[in-house]
């Protein structure tokens, strides 16, 4: 059965791309659960709540991830137009921006600690900051692996159908990560 998977892939690409959309829905539910948990928890008492202003660094990381979404889209367009060198360039750029985002997010944790906002905290609203950013970073990590996978496919010169499939799935996921971060950021801004 493993042997036919290559053939099956070809027909199932549409159904498999749909799997990514469904995964995004389930992933969104995870964050919906976490943010609702935050609301329920914070509403429980006046002593709870973020009680800090969010660091500047979040502005930078937001800008970085939005730009990376643009480069992702450019990579997709170049892949579609068979401009593989451009595709390679934009994919690499996206990966670099993704890594930069990762680093900025981690630096905000240091900022939090410096400002006395610890993970182990009697005010769990502040612990939630780490949960939100951490869970999002896990998604970014998965997205980076997908980007690298798409780049490797280009190296190995896989058929254009497969290349485009990888690109599409990766870009769907990457844009989702972008939107997800904006959602989390706005959510936190409204609650600070």
């Amino acid at each position: 059965m493993v042997q036919t998977s290559a053939d099956q892939d070809r027909i199932n690409l549409r159904a498999r791309k749909f799997l990514m959309w469904l995964f995004i829905i389930s992933s969104f539910m995870l964050f919906a659960g976490l943010t609702s948990g935050f609301i329920v928890y914070t509403a429980g008492s006046v002593e709870r709540g973020l009680k800090i202003l969010l660091p500047q660094a979040f502005m930078y990381s937001t800008a970085v991830i939005i730009i990376s979404s643009v480069t992702m889209h450019l990579a997709y367009l170049s892949g579609k137009r068979l401009q593989f060198n451009k595709q390679k360039l934009y994919l690499t750029l996206t990966i670099l921006l993704g890594i930069l985002f990762f680093i900025i997010q981690l630096s905000t944790w240091r900022w939090f600690i410096a400002h006395g906002v610890y993970f182990v905290n009697y005010n769990a609203s502040q612990s939630f900051l780490y949960i939100f950013t951490g869970a999002h970073l896990l998604h970014v990590f998965a997205g980076l692996i997908m980007l690298i996978y798409a780049l490797l496919g280009l190296r190995k010169n896989i058929p254009q159908v497969r290349n485009l499939f990888r690109l599409e799935v990766t870009s769907i996921f990457w844009h989702f990560i972008d939107i997800l971060w904006i959602y989390l950021y706005v959510f936190l801004l409204l609650n600070q």
Binding site: L22, I25, S26, S27, M29, L30, F31, A32, G33, L34, G37, Y41, F119, V120, N121, Y122, A124, S127, I131, A135
Partner: peptide, 25 residues
């Protein structure tokens, strides 16, 4: 399943941090 199981994961993640990392969710 797709809409409800992830929410359990959210709860379980917080529970794990409470158990093993000393948070107070």
């Amino acid at each position: 399943g797709v809409l409800s199981f992830p929410v359990l994961v959210a709860g379980v993640v917080l529970l794990i941090f409470d158990r093993s990392f000393g948070t107070s969710f």
